[in-house]
Design a protein around this nucleic acid. Structure first.
Length: 436
RNA sequence: GGUGGGGUGUCUGAGCGGUUGAAAGAGGCAGUCUUGAAAACUGCUGUGGUCAAAAGCCACCGUGAGUUCGAAUCUCACCCCCACCGCCA
């Protein structure tokens, strides 16, 4: 969410952001609704002030007659109130709905383009390996070495279901262990956050209302006295980011406690309704996976948060470098970055079967856009209350990262070598062979 | 799932129809004293809106609705927390 005062003063900058981000949002209408609601609020406040004054006079009234006169006057004041209140309620609802859609202003250095074709390669690390034998994809490797079973997965859990098996299970957790250790060294507070979330957390992070289709909703049945069922909507989150950020929702933090560096490991759920045809095979696009996520809350200082965006990108690249996986960094263009973002990088890791880089990480600075939604604030040294900047980035997500590991580490004999850094987590295992 | 007790500011905690935006204490900030510190004493210390700012005004005591001239206080529903019982990884 942007500051309404900012929108009032800079309507053109906001409209420009809508165009660059390819987001439909009628700023003129928003400002019109804003003005109307302010006007009604002022009228109601004037009435409330009169009523308060009269109300205070009642206990001082010297007799019943005087009291009745005042009460009569107050009732007269009430005449228009319910009408105005009804109107205000409608306007407020409309206003809030619109405010949730207004995008953040993208950074000056973000590439401008309506879609992902405008993303720019910012950095490349490592050379895609040349194989002197025909490469298999992770699906084939997974079958041959009995590591992945998608047929059974689909049987039990439907489209995009999968089982990880045997050494793949250990590989999966070895990667997470390695990631968690790195994050602890970097000074992050560690969390296993909840994945069943209330609406406000997802509205706060910006995943709602825009991403409603992407998110699984579950019911929390309760019963009214009448026997009617009521449900508070609950959602399965697609990332630890909302639960980590919402941890501080509604709080006023102290500047000396910033930055707050949080790291969460959680299961992640994505309905993927918008991508039925895409990546239908294998582990690339699945409905549930596990992810280590990093989140950071820092001062409202664009230079500082911009620096943290780079630092968080480096942390993620450290994991990929440890795993010796070739990868590249994309500077994401305005049309591909999402409404709340100021600046965004994706990291893509080389996947031999695709003969291409595939997205494995996503690093974003949302400045104060989320903090305003979550009402997370801090008091600076001068005592001013401000909204902090918030950032998030993938540390590592599996099984997607296993695609890169399995495919890049496959050997001529059909086995898979274990990356050196992971071997200690696997009891010194160096290679995965086909089972007899 | 059942029964009982609760949700008040940074925290503890009082208030249970009308000068209560809210006692008291703790904490925090500033000052006096002190070589310095501690102690003691004095003062200040919620958020948001109107609003860019001051004064004024308005709103906020878990959330939402209601009763009333007037609600932190009464009614209803919901959410959450605590205790005990039941069930359970």
């Amino acid at each position: 969410m942007l500051d309404i005062k900012f929108i009032r003063q800079n309507p053109d900058a906001v409209k420009d952001a809508c165009v660059k981000k390819n987001i439909k949002c009628d700023i003129d209408k928003l400002l019109d609704v804003d003005q109307k609601r302010i006007k009604i609020k002022q009228d109601l406040e004037a009435i409330a002030a009169e009523k308060n004054k009269a109300s205070k006079a009642i206990p001082q009234a010297k007799d019943q007659i005087e009291r009745d006169t005042i009460i009569k006057a107050m009732k007269a004041l009430d005449e228009n109130v319910s009408n105005l209140e009804k109107k205000l309620k409608e306007l407020e609802a409309e206003y809030e709905q619109m405010m949730l859609v207004v995008p953040n202003i993208p950074s000056e250095d973000s590439p401008i383009s309506p879609d992902e074709s405008g993303n720019v390669v910012a950095e490349t690390w490592g050379e895609p390996k040349k194989f002197d034998f025909p490469v298999k994809d992770h699906i084939q490797l997974g079958k041959d070495l009995d590591l992945i079973d998608t047929e059974a997965g689909v049987k039990t859990s439907g489209f995009r279901g999968y089982y990880l098996k045997n050494e793949a299970v250990f590989l999966h957790f070895a990667i997470f262990w390695h990631a968690l250790n790195l994050m602890r060294e970097k000074g992050f507070k560690m969390f296993v956050p909840p994945t069943i979330l209330r609406e406000f957390a997802l509205v706060g992070s910006g995943h709602l209302p825009a991403g409603r289709d992407e998110i699984y909703q579950i019911g929390n049945p309760g019963k009214l006295e009448s026997g009617e069922e009521v449900k508070e909507p609950l959602y399965l989150t697609g990332t630890a980011e909302p639960s980590l950020l919402a941890y501080h929702a509604g709080q006023i933090l102290n500047e000396k406690d910033l930055p707050i560096k949080m790291c969460g490991i959680s299961q992640c759920y994505r309905s993927e309704v918008g991508s039925y045809g895409k990546d239908a095979k294998g582990l690339y696009r699945v409905h549930e996976f596990m992810k280590v996520e990093q989140v950071l809350i820092c001062k409202n200082d664009i230079e500082e948060s911009s620096q943290w965006l780079e630092t968080m990108r480096e942390i993620s690249q450290t994991i990929l470098k440890d795993l010796e996986l070739p990868h590249r960094v994309l500077s994401i263009c305005t049309g591909d970055m999402g409404a709340g973002k100021y600046k965004m990088y994706d990291i893509e890791t080389w996947m031999p079967s695709r003969q291409a880089y595939g997205e494995t990480h996503s690093d974003s600075n949302l400045t104060d856009w989320q903090a305003r939604r979550l009402n997370t604030r801090y008091r600076d040294k001068e005592g001013n209350i401000k909204f902090p900047h918030m950032l998030n980035n993938t540390v590592v997500a599996s099984p997607r990262i296993l695609i890169a590991v399995m495919e890049n580490y496959q050997q001529a004999d059909g086995s898979i070598a274990i990356p050196k850094v992971l071997q200690p987590y696997l009891g010194g295992m160096t290679q995965i062979f086909a089972k007899k």
